[in-house]
């Protein structure tokens, strides 16, 4: 027993899904990976305790999202600024249609985007999201509805532009 039993498998399995969620939420693949890696490092440090939890993935999920929501207010632009200085080009590891979706998500107000990503990408129930975001269930439903409507309008505009350009 090394104290880190099961960590590698847990990390390999959980990392991609969490990065996908936070890329959709933050709109920046590198920033998403930074946040997720930080969460996994914390899990690594406390793995002896966290591995005894019913759902270690829920713990990492919560830490990563907390980092992302606090980061969103302050460092997303800074990270981009730094990369520009280093002349790095960050290519998201997904296809153009998914990049377009993430771009559309970025046009949503933060609360709607978070609800949409948690529900439709992280597969969280409305009740879970209501508890996590401290809002009544009906409010979450209305966020999801408004978020979908805004996304639909944005995606439709993008498609029209693409048709015109063609």
């Amino acid at each position: 027993m090394t104290g880190r039993d099961g960590y590698a498998e847990f990390y390999q399995h959980t990392y991609p899904r969490l990065c996908g969620q936070l890329y959709a939420y933050l709109g920046d693949a590198t920033e998403a990976e930074d946040v997720v890696q930080e969460a996994f490092l914390r899990a690594w440090r406390d793995w002896r305790k966290i591995s005894t939890y019913d759902q270690p993935a829920a713990w990492v999920h919560r830490v990563a999202w907390n980092l992302a929501t606090s980061r969103l207010r302050r460092v997303v632009t800074a990270a981009r600024h730094v990369r520009r200085h280093r002349h790095e080009t960050v290519v998201p590891p997904v296809g153009p249609e998914h990049v377009a979706l993430v771009a559309a998500l970025r046009t949503l107000p933060e609360t709607l985007r978070r609800a949409i990503v948690l529900h439709y990408i992280a597969d969280r129930s409305v009740a879970d999201i209501a508890a996590e975001m401290g809002a009544p269930r009906g409010t979450v439903l209305s966020w999801l509805h408004r978020g979908r409507a805004l996304l639909a309008a944005h995606l439709s505009d993008t498609r029209l532009e693409a048709t015109r350009d063609a």
Partner: peptide
């Protein structure tokens, strides 16, 4: 349009990001 796009994204990112 929206729900299929979200579903497709959800499926794709499982393979896209590598630890």
């Amino acid at each position: 349009d929206v729900l299929p796009a979200l579903s497709a994204y959800r499926a794709a990112v499982r393979e896209a990001f590598v630890a």
